[in-house]
Nucleic acid binder design. Structure first.
Lengths: 200, 200
DNA sequence: GGTGAAAGTCAACATTTTTTTCCAAAAAAA
DNA sequence: TTTTTTTGGAAAAAAATGTTGACTTTCACC
């Protein structure tokens, strides 16, 4: 972390902003948060962060800040719990297997763990058999997110989450598979997929 | 490579400081902690620690101390060269950007680097826009492998590699795009994709 | 295609922090 | 004693941080 105190404050703000809003802050919003009177202060900080490799942006493009992986230089060893396949409970691989994952691919809010995908239930979202998914532990999801859900305390499945008139539709990304529609009390969300890794 | 007592104290302080704050201390802060009246004392110690390989810093850069011991095991920092899109040369991002990748997702045989995918030319192989691909530097490939190829010393593209009766077919995994068939001498293989990572 | 608001770019300037370099000297170790 | 390590004091040099204000680019809308 070769940053000054101020630079880190600004990088942290940007990181949180993107994490919370899904888009990067404008320079004015950054200036507002730090009570800068001048946008040029922000501009120079962004230049500094950019030249040090912590972020990148497009010239003249609004809200085009992209964090680079080096921004969060750390790595976490996440537990690899096992396989997740449509309709079957998680099948544990082994007790103490872990996998080092760069923090760039993690959620900062909650614990994460890794599952290996079995089957093609999410193939249209380009998650294929054998892929590893990093799952953020969470019991709530935004509609459309890919979730790990426990149904009837029995089956664990990887699906997209859509709440619909009092029910929950768990939608595979695979035209050959039917969605599951169930009462909310039958579903327990285990987590949300935050990243995918594949090894050839 | 042994340290004196004092040097170890100072290295420990720096380690803790970085651990707690996320950025390195200034020489004045180090002097303050050890109640030095002179910054030169700190300066000399940093020189000593640096020449013995315990830390690295940039000349004339504020708070640029980096501990060199803590290279996290099992993870490599690969250079992120830039974007690769069908038909366009690699668009460099910045020279110093890196990305930590777990060794599990690397090839052990050759050097690797990371490219960010632009466009959907490999979508049917489930590599989508915005994905990061880890590329193993290689000049030969097995038919069917996904390669980074340089055509006519001009364009770099991500395609599947098929040698066919004296020519080379570079096949996109996208039905809407046509394959490129060229003489072998016009193609230089840059590398082979060994893993894919995606962040939502 | 024109227009205007929003957002980004950048030079000139001032201030504060931080690093680097002098010349020395005490303290500890060999 | 001789050498190495450690600390002082001061000042030059460079980087970091901000302000003001003018200019350009992008984009949505007429």
């Amino acid at each position: 972390m070769k940053l000054t105190q101020r630079q880190k404050e600004i990088l942290d703000f940007i990181t949180e902003f993107i994490d919370g809003n899904g888009y990067s802050p404008s320079m004015e919003e950054i200036a507002g948060h730090f009570k800068f009177a001048s946008l040029n202060a922000v501009y120079k900080h962004l230049e500094a962060l950019s030249s040090r490799g912590y972020l990148r942006r497009d010239a003249n493009r609004a809200r085009s800040i992209e964090l680079s992986a080096g921004a969060t230089a750390g790595v976490q060893n996440l537990p690899l719990f096992g396989y997740v396949a449509a309709g079957h409970p998680i099948e544990a691989i082994s007790n103490s297997e872990t996998m080092p994952i760069p923090e760039f691919f993690l959620s900062r809010r909650n614990d994460c763990y890794v599952l290996k995908v079995k089957g093609d239930s999410m193939i249209e979202d380009h998650i294929q058999d054998g892929d590893y998914v990093v799952v953020e532990s969470r019991t709530a999801a935004v509609p459309g997110e890919t979730v790990v859900a426990l149904i009837d305390n029995e089956n664990v499945t990887l699906k997209k989450y859509y709440p619909e008139n009092g029910r929950i539709r768990l939608q595979p990304a695979n035209a050959t598979l039917a969605p599951i529609v169930v009462e909310p009390q039958r579903v327990k969300l285990q987590g949300v997929v935050v990243s995918v890794m594949r090894k050839y």
